[in-house]
């Protein structure tokens, strides 16, 4: 498969593609990932709060049917493979932004796929907060909203950052897949050149860049989480 990657002709062609298409593709991947992450967090974080506090013994017990519904929706969306979900949400994408093709349109399926994941990650971060600390807040006369705003969220910030990093890197991975339905970015280049036209060197370079991006996000997230965490003695 990888025969003849490194002959002069191939290298020259790859270099051409890198110069002419990579900057735009890199930018597309970056903004799709970041915008999709932003919307996924906007939807996922409140949902995560509800999942964490709404249980029968939670801080803000919600009706059992509502919790069942929320959990059901999250599980349902999480169990559809992204490749299929992308195709399933095409009507919704059309409804929301008028078209289902293009880089910007690929944000919709990404958000739909990622927000339930973000909700579960956030829920697990919130559950890490010591129940005794929540009891303390209750014993001081805090209302459920005050507990959420002043205890639950601030106390889980480091964990939210770590889990948020996992979400962003996963969304980056998904965004590469959206090349299939017409989304742009490094993923599209990797598929178009590597899979359809056997230009493995181009694919390799695109993947390398994706790896670099993941590394960058991960080390940024790890550093931010450590800096935010006041439990570490310094």
């Amino acid at each position: 498969m990888f025969k003849n990657i490194f002959n002069a002709e191939m290298a020259a062609e790859a270099w051409d593609v890198i110069i002419s298409q990579f900057p735009l593709a890199f930018w597309e991947t970056l903004y799709v990932t970041l915008l999709a992450s932003l919307f996924a967090f906007l939807l996922g974080l409140p949902l995560g709060v509800l999942l964490a506090v709404g249980g029968k013994k939670g801080i803000l017990p919600l009706p059992a049917w509502l919790m069942k519904l929320l959990n059901g929706v999250v599980n349902l969306l999480r169990s559809v493979p992204f490749l299929i979900l992308m195709i399933m949400v095409i009507p919704l994408t059309r409804l929301l932004i008028g078209t289902s093709v293009g880089t910007f349109a690929s944000i919709v399926p990404l958000v739909i796929a990622a927000f339930p994941f973000v909700a579960r990650l956030a829920e697990s971060s919130f559950r890490e907060v010591d129940p005794n600390t929540l009891e303390m807040a209750q014993s001081m006369g805090a209302s459920p909203m005050q507990i959420i705003a002043k205890v639950l969220i601030p106390e889980s910030i480091p964990s939210l950052i770590s889990n948020g990093t996992i979400a962003v890197t996963t969304i980056l991975g998904y965004s590469a897949m959206s090349g299939i339905i017409g989304g742009g970015g490094l993923g599209k280049i990797a598929i178009n050149y590597g899979y359809y036209r056997y230009r493995y060197l181009v694919m390799l370079c695109a993947v390398l860049l994706l790896i670099l991006l993941v590394q960058l996000f991960q080390s940024l997230g790890t550093r931010l989480a450590a800096r935010a965490d006041k439990r570490l003695k310094r």
């Binding site: 010591d130 600390t133 303390m136 014993s139 209302s143 106390e155 910030i157 006041k230």
Partner: peptide
């Protein structure tokens, strides 16, 4: 909730807010 401000509590595990400074904990 108002009454609970008159009956406060300290705990075996202290239950301080670990992401807040001591001053902010007392302010809580």
């Amino acid at each position: 909730r108002k009454k609970r401000r008159e009956i406060t509590m300290i705990f075996q595990g202290f239950n301080l807010l670990m992401q807040r400074s001591c001053l902010k904990n007392v302010c809580f």
